[in-house]
Each structure stands twice: as structure tokens, then as C-alpha cells.
């Protein structure tokens, strides 16, 4: 699905790199533990997390993740947004929790 569609499925807001919202993503990984993202992510293009510090962007960058979904209504600060912006990573925020976000996106066809 396109990142714009992903955002719509979870009533999300694209907060940076909106010009890349047409990009296709195929699979996602949900975790607040960046250690686990580094250990377990294979080729997932989307990271779903409730953590907000710049390391979510660095972790995504190292893993070639193209889109970060920040759940539970959290607001990434300017440092996080500008780091994501500079590295071409799309950030989507949603008020939904991690379970519902993952569930909706999985039902919509995003793979594990």
C-alpha cells in the first residue's frame, strides 16, 4: 500500500516528507525496543513505535526503513522531525495504540 493509504487506515497525520507519501510499503515491524528492531527486522519498510527519541530515526535509517508510525498520540519533537526529514524518512502520527494500528494495517494487507 502507499504510505498515504497507510496513514488513512489509522486516521494518521503525515508530519514530514509528505512528498514521499506515494511510496509503496509492503511490511511492518512493531516495537518500542529499538534493540529488537536492530535484531529482528529483515526487510520491513515500516516501523510502528510508541517511543519518541532521535534513535527511532537512526534505527530506521540503519535498517533502511522508509516510514515510522508513531502511535498512542505521541508527538515527535523538532529534533526527531528534522533528522527524519534530512534522511528522507516519512513520519506518520496516530492517536491509535500500537495494537490497533498494527491490526488495522495487517488487515489492510501489510505483511509481518
Amino acid at each position: 500500500m502507499k504510505i498515504s493509504e497507510l496513514s488513512a487506515y489509522i486516521d494518521g497525520t503525515i508530519v514530514c516528507n509528505a512528498h514521499k507519501a506515494d511510496k509503496e510499503v509492503y511490511s511492518a515491524f512493531s516495537s518500542d525496543m529499538m534493540s529488537d528492531v536492530l535484531a529482528f527486522v529483515m526487510d520491513q519498510g515500516v516501523l510502528i513505535t510508541g517511543l519518541i527519541n532521535p534513535q527511532i530515526v537512526r534505527t530506521a535509517l540503519m535498517m533502511d526503513i522508509e516510514c515510522i508510525v508513531v502511535v498512542r498520540g505521541k508527538t515527535p519533537n523538532n529534533d526527531i522531525i528534522s533528522l527524519a526529514e534530512a534522511n528522507g524518512i516519512v513520519v506518520v502520527t496516530t492517536k491509535k495504540n500500537m495494537f490497533e494500528t498494527s491490526g488495522r494495517l495487517y488487515s489492510a494487507g501489510l505483511k509481518a
Binding site: M33, S35, Q55, I56
Partner: peptide
Amino acid sequence: VQRLGFGAGMGLPN
């Protein structure tokens, strides 16, 4: 550190 998303004991093995 764990609240920051690290310290799962996967660093060195990884």
C-alpha cells in the same frame, strides 16, 4: 536506558 529503547541484551550478539 531501557526506557530509551535499548538495553535488551542484543547489542554484542548482534
